[in-house]
Design a binder for these strands. Sequence first.
DNA 1: TGCATAATTGGCATAATAACCAAATGACTG
DNA 2: CAGTCATTTGGTTATTATGCCAATTATGCA
Lengths: 105, 105
Amino acid sequence: MEQHKARLEARAGVLKALAHPTRLFLVEALSDTPHCVNDLTEMVGADTSTVSKHLSILKNAGLIRDEKQGKQVFYRLRIPCALNFLDCVEAVLREQARERMAVIG
Amino acid sequence: MEQHKARLEARAGVLKALAHPTRLFLVEALSDTPHCVNDLTEMVGADTSTVSKHLSILKNAGLIRDEKQGKQVFYRLRIPCALNFLDCVEAVLREQARERMAVIG
DNA sequence: TGCATAATTGGCATAATAACCAAATGACTG
DNA sequence: CAGTCATTTGGTTATTATGCCAATTATGCA
């Protein structure tokens, strides 16, 4: 029972890590190729420290992995299925749209 | 470009709705059978108003649907795949565990 | 060594969440 | 119509998240 609660919290933690537009963008960007923080920062268009913190959150959640190369840090996706989520998320968004249509008539 | 940003926000919104232990519990509970708020409240063990608000968040995200029956409101899962998420989430959690093992040695 | 580049960390202000209690709404029942 | 049960909404407070700036750490190079 207590174990179940812990599991729910762990799952929620992973989802929370993904539940931010910038972090979704980062996951998406890293699904192609590894990138260094600087590149990602340019793509995102925010402060380096902000992007670094987002990456840290994704890393702590186990979604990405970092590797130092010279003075750069390269991040790469750790879980291939991280994008499979999004298929389902898209299904939810379609339902949202359907709901809105229903309300309008 | 602006469209992509909107899509990221929409997706993040769905994930955010799921990113809470209680709400994951509710989704899980509703995956079996529809339940009324009172039943869910007992299962969760929190204030009715709290549970009602969580249900409202899930509903607004398009994940569940409500239906009034007499003086009760029954909620049901709207997206069958909402639990498929969790397979991937579990994969992430296994990676987390692996990471911890690596740190320990 | 001294400097420049890359990234992380700390600090702070602001905003968003979450939980509870209390009050209001909606719907059946006597 | 008054009363009761089921649910939602409003209000308050505590906690957490976010983003930037400034300062620090780490690495490579002249």
